[in-house]
């Protein structure tokens, strides 16, 4: 029950800290203030996207278009910022959220309204938006020196010793936690994922919720587009290629059930932290960067196996347990 879920998250958190400690013992720089600050900055994007992916998986969906959305939105905002360097920086994240939400709405409309399987829809939109990057950019790159100054500087602003990247990641995670645990919308998503028909019978507006889930996921992917372009100071066709799989992996590691209906925001966050940290640590512990992908594959499989074991369908016992007449429950 709840304790099991809690302990899973605790276990993840502990292994995450152990990972950092391991890296620190090899390269003390890794756990220096600057090292940790960089780590948190790096992880914020994966955290945002993992949380975005989590709510989709929770309702038995999947969004393979998050990375394409990120790249497309990133290119849109990069081009806009190059063309209008004078606008205040706060415009860019807003533009990203709006564009990303619109991309998500298309997914949501196709999935909720037309009832097309999410994997088909998002596979298609993934291609479409990847291709659209090329269409709007003509295949050219936007690189560091082209961005307006504030575009790159603002997210690096430090508050309480941590960058704005970190605070955005934290805000998204905390906000989603609040939505998923303390609001009607969030709890109804759990109901939809656990038993869609029962949710409909209970009066949950299933289509409405489904549409908004994909829209929220799109908006968060859009926000990540801004984070990504300013973090890496570039926008091109191949930005974040394959990143959608990392978001799914983070969720699976975080204990989100791929069959829907079970999983927590905290789990997804720690799944993302664990996976992201692992990637950052590989060079530190002397493993070639080229093995990163194989390792993440193995970890996904292990996590899925672990999920399966811990979520075995309950055995419906008929024979009374050996204890004499102990059936008190």
């Amino acid at each position: 029950m709840l304790n099991v879920l809690k302990s899973r998250e605790a276990l993840l958190a502990a292994s995450w800290l152990a990972l950092i400690a391991l890296a620190g013992s090899i390269t003390p720089n890794f756990v220096s203030i600057q090292g940790l600050r960089d780590l948190m900055t790096d992880l914020s994007i994966l955290v945002v996207l993992a949380v975005a992916q989590m709510i989709v998986i929770l309702i038995r969906g999947i969004d393979l278009s998050v990375a394409a959305n990120l790249a497309f939105t990133g290119m849109v905002v990069a081009l806009l910022s190059v063309a209008n360097p004078g606008l205040p920086t706060v415009v860019w994240p807003l533009v990203c959220i709006v564009v990303g939400a619109m991309v998500g709405m298309l997914n949501g409309a196709l999935i909720a309204e037309l009832q097309i399987p999410p994997i088909v829809v998002t596979l298609g939109t993934m291609s479409i938006w990847r291709g659209m990057i090329f269409v709007i950019s003509g295949g050219s790159w936007v690189v560091q020196h082209q961005f307006p100054e504030g575009y790159l500087a603002v997210p690096r602003t430090q508050i309480l010793g941590l960058t704005l990247f970190f605070w955005i990641g934290l805000t998204v995670a905390a906000g989603m936690w609040l939505v998923m645990t303390q609001t009607r919308f969030g709890r109804e998503l759990y109901g939809m994922g656990g038993n869609p028909r029962a949710a409909q019978y209970a009066g949950v507006r299933v289509k409405h919720h489904e549409f908004w889930v994909y829209t929220i996921t799109g908006a968060l992917a859009g926000l990540s587009g801004w984070l990504w372009t300013s973090r890496y100071a570039m926008a091109n066709t191949d930005v974040a290629a394959g990143f959608e799989l990392q978001t799914v992996a983070a969720c699976v590691i975080g204990g989100v059930a791929i069959a829907g209906g079970a999983g927590t925001v905290i789990g997804a966050v720690f799944g993302a932290l664990f996976l992201g940290t692992l990637y950052n640590i590989l060079p530190v512990i002397g493993v070639s960067q080229f093995w990163q992908q194989a390792l993440s594959g193995a970890i996904i499989l292990l996590a899925v196996y672990f999920n399966m074991i811990s979520r075995k369908p309950p055995v419906r016992r008929i024979l009374p347990l050996a204890s004499p007449q102990g059936a008190g429950e």
Partner: peptide
């Protein structure tokens, strides 16, 4: 209505089952 098929949520608590849709 209490429908014939299971219309409850196995992964959720009794409280949530009772108040799903009208919290």
């Amino acid at each position: 209505a209490i429908h014939q098929e299971t219309t409850l949520f196995e992964e959720l608590s009794i409280v949530e089952n009772i108040f799903m849709g009208h919290p």
